[in-house]
């Protein structure tokens, strides 16, 4: 009975993707429907006067997928770890496979967010507005697609991963400690926000550390370090965790 088998970590990633496929799809259907509604509403020209603040609506939209991914992250360990370990999968392969899922989903979500900016720009241009970005970013206009993608990818990864650590913390410790861990688990997400505030980072790197080079490269390196910390922390929490009847 020799069959070609996927690597266990690969198997974990594809099984998790299979489990959550409809959750992700339905989420985006709802999310995009809401924004399409807003776009249609704007195109009725009801607000077509010169006094309208032409701020980007899509810019603020990224908060919703961040929180959504964090919730999915919280559920990851309590809902799935026992199933995998009881199917003979090591905790290590669960963490690796889960990290693949977090990476893949963050990338897909970031792609959707990135695609939204040029579409928004198109809609705004039809109304003779220019979408203005209110918050600091590693990109400065709606057409720097690579910057937009990576910023969203890093943020989504951080929020998804932080949620995962919260869930793992509850599985690893009693709920009292889990509650404390859950507060600490927000640190990676906050760290990523700090890292990605490019103007703030740029100033810090130049003034404090006297590093004078393209801050984007530094941002990417720091972001990757935060991502690695998230994966490492999860592995530390789950490495020896006992499988119980109720994981939380």
């Amino acid at each position: 009975m020799s069959r070609k088998r996927k690597h266990p970590a690969h198997n974990v990633a594809s099984e998790l993707l299979y489990t959550y496929r409809w959750t992700f799809i339905v989420y985006w259907i709802i999310f995009i429907s809401i924004f399409l509604g807003i776009a249609v509403f704007m195109n009725t020209n009801m607000f077509n006067n010169e006094g309208f603040d032409s701020q980007s609506a899509w810019e603020g939209a990224s908060n919703s997928p961040k929180i959504f991914l964090m919730v999915i992250g919280i559920l990851l360990t309590p809902l799935s770890l026992a199933s995998f370990v009881s199917s003979g999968v090591t905790r290590k392969h669960f963490v690796i496979g889960g990290s693949f899922l977090v990476t893949l989903i963050s990338a897909i979500f970031a792609l959707i967010m990135t695609a939204g900016y040029p579409i928004e720009q198109m809609i705004y241009e039809q109304n003779n507005w220019t979408p203005a970005l209110k918050n600091p970013h590693i990109f400065s206009s709606s057409d720097q697609l690579a910057g937009i993608f990576f910023e969203h990818f890093f943020l989504f990864f951080a929020y998804f991963g932080s949620g995962w650590i919260i869930g793992s913390g509850f599985a690893r410790f009693r709920w009292q400690l889990g509650a404390i861990i859950s507060v600490a688990s927000l640190l990676p997400a906050m760290a990523m926000e700090v890292v990605l505030s490019s103007d703030w980072m740029g100033r810090l790197m130049q003034n404090v550390f006297e590093v004078d080079r393209n801050p984007i490269a530094v941002v990417v390196v720091l972001a990757v370090i935060v991502m690695a910390c998230i994966v490492g922390l999860n592995y530390l929490l789950l490495r020896r965790v006992a499988i119980k009847k109720r994981m939380v």
Binding site: R3, E15, T19, L79, F84, K245
Partner: peptide
């Protein structure tokens, strides 16, 4: 009591088992 996730269907549980056990028949 099993270690299967309560929110999965029976066929999902079997699917997971089939994908994880090397000698699954």
């Amino acid at each position: 009591s099993g270690s299967f996730s309560d929110s999965s269907s029976v066929s999902d549980v079997l699917r997971l088992s089939a994908s994880c056990w090397p000698n699954w028949d």
